[in-house]
Design a protein around this nucleic acid. Sequence first.
DNA 1: TATTGTTATACTCTATAACTATA
DNA 2: TATAGTTATAGAGTATAACAATA
Lengths: 148, 148
Amino acid sequence: MAENIPPELASDLRHYLTRLYLALRRHSPINELSATQSSALATLLDHGPMRMGELAERECVRMPTATSLVDVLTRDGLAERRPDPDDRRAVVISLTDQGRALIADIRDRRDATVTAALEQLTAAQVAALAEAAPALRDLQARLENNDR
Amino acid sequence: MAENIPPELASDLRHYLTRLYLALRRHSPINELSATQSSALATLLDHGPMRMGELAERECVRMPTATSLVDVLTRDGLAERRPDPDDRRAVVISLTDQGRALIADIRDRRDATVTAALEQLTAAQVAALAEAAPALRDLQARLENNDR
DNA sequence: TATTGTTATACTCTATAACTATA
DNA sequence: TATAGTTATAGAGTATAACAATA
């Protein structure tokens, strides 16, 4: 494990990461979906149909919040509730074809935005980012784990 | 400028950055300040007293939002309004000593959280992150600029 | 009894529109 | 008339508490 952490690194990373997220978020498609909604759709796309409780947990929200979120997605034809055949208390949330197409399209356009920004960096900077990507993933995992 | 962007890099970075932000955000001090409030305090700490309109612009919110945010900060003794001596329509927002101490303390604790996670990575990973930090800063700047 | 989900209610954050006071 | 800020109002997102149906 690392021992000599450069003194400013934690502060710099926290600052840049926060700003990057806000910049990315500002590129969220206006007039289409909120960040909350697109996050839920992406979770459903990546992990398949799931029960309300699992969706709430993955999105780090409480059940009533998930209920009202799914209400909106259902109203807009992006997701649907079905009864769970194994447990009549439960519902299973799944994407509609329209929901699947929309979130895939949004992802493509967001990736294109980041690619366009990357193209304005130097080749060395892009290489540094590619080198650091796995460390970013692990850093995130550590933060999540230290959390719970 | 870079030309050959690795195909998965944009997608990976977007994903890790989003998750990292959410993980960092979850470490926000509970029962103390919301993300919105601490962001405003940090802006006031970094840039000194400013008028309501400037605070709104820096926080990327509209004026009524800034007004109610400052209402809360004032109510809690973290900031204060003063008349602008040069323009009797305007107010100047400044931190109180209590607000300054609180935001400095929050920053220190957030940095400590990130440092603790960094210490669990390998030395090579920490080096890769330190190497990539300037590129993260520039990537953010490009995204902001492409935006406006 | 315990669990799954919904309903009721409330607070924060955000916005637009209308207003007041001053420039 | 234009600008700085506030007030009025509304909608999204979040929470806790209380409830219904089922396990």
